[in-house]
Design a binder for these strands. Sequence first.
DNA 1: GCAAAAGTGTTGTCCTTACACCCATGC
DNA 2: GCATGGGTGTAAGGACAACACTTTTGC
Lengths: 211, 211
Amino acid sequence: MIFGFDENELKILLIRSDLEIFKGQWSLLGDFAADNEELDGAAYRVLCERTGMTDVYLEQVRTFSKPGRHPGGRVLTVAYCSLLNIEQHKLGKMDNELHWHTVKGIREMAFDHKEIMEFSYTWLQKRIMEHPLGFNLLPEKFSLRELQNLYEAILDIKLDRRNFRKKFFSMDFLIDTGEYEDDVPHRPGRLYQFNFEKYELNKRRWTGIDF
Amino acid sequence: MIFGFDENELKILLIRSDLEIFKGQWSLLGDFAADNEELDGAAYRVLCERTGMTDVYLEQVRTFSKPGRHPGGRVLTVAYCSLLNIEQHKLGKMDNELHWHTVKGIREMAFDHKEIMEFSYTWLQKRIMEHPLGFNLLPEKFSLRELQNLYEAILDIKLDRRNFRKKFFSMDFLIDTGEYEDDVPHRPGRLYQFNFEKYELNKRRWTGIDF
DNA sequence: GCAAAAGTGTTGTCCTTACACCCATGC
DNA sequence: GCATGGGTGTAAGGACAACACTTTTGC
């Protein structure tokens, strides 16, 4: 389950199913783990192989085990969620079988992947309130407007711009780069970076965001 | 991972490991899932077989996959958490290989079960704030003091008695049975039941507890 | 100079916290 | 009647939500 954020929408990377009975349908990226392979490692391997990226956020979500899930027999799926910067991925190798879909627009998927997708999306909505994961979806430098758009898209809500600012500034994990947006047809906003080191040092005291 | 609550402490049901290299150590209850078995069903089967109980709360926590976890080779463990009334269990069949341990007192466990236990405990602490799971650990009728002891034990914090009452009454999911405690050397407290039906109807609006 | 979004502070309301006294029961 | 915990209300402080105007840039 690979999430990205583009054009103010949450997106997900899917591949065309290679099975005859799911012809034309889309499915999540996955693979079978080798016999001696740790699952975290296997998930990371698939992620890197398919996207050509490294250093990507990855976390286990849940294991799905309903019988009849897979036409090939009994298959367990341990779902992982990864968040990456979609721009960075697009610049990498193109794979014609892969496509970014908006999360809201997906109608049908192969296997029980729709169910897995929905579970993971709900999981992400919750998780993003507890940990500052969202920054993995943004470029290194971002405006507060982009950050707000991200939260609004994931949580599917509207937020007050001023209160949003206050909240993030009071967390004190944003570094003001001193730089400004470019190529915008209005007053450019400041660009910030997320202070991952400071967050790591202080995360014991962190209790989450609360909109 | 079977949790119970007794003598104002959170407890966990363990079994003596039957493997030679873990001789004397305690381990979580578990079993291998049959080839055509759904995991939720397998976990429930083991739970029922071992405790003789039915109608027990059960939920998947996480999958553990580190290689070298199990001396028999590569084994995945999908951890489940169940919450049950310890009194009810004690009244059932006794199994000499099973023992209730306080969560705080456990030093060493077989396999990587200590890690699984700690992960599940942290998971439970979080989960109990989001959903009213705790009632599964109490008898059908309980006093507010017992309920508070439960939350204090699980979260390992002290709470103000008056504010605790206010909070739970304002949720409006407690049914006053009109009955009172018995055999206490002081003024007996009222006994309540949790209104599971009402909670089910309203849980969409539920956003969790917040101490 | 006009459109569009950036940037900033204050006020009222609600929720949370802290806290003290009387009550019912067993012994 | 004394010890023990049950049961209740209030006041202060902090957090959140609502809200409007000025500033900067592109065109």
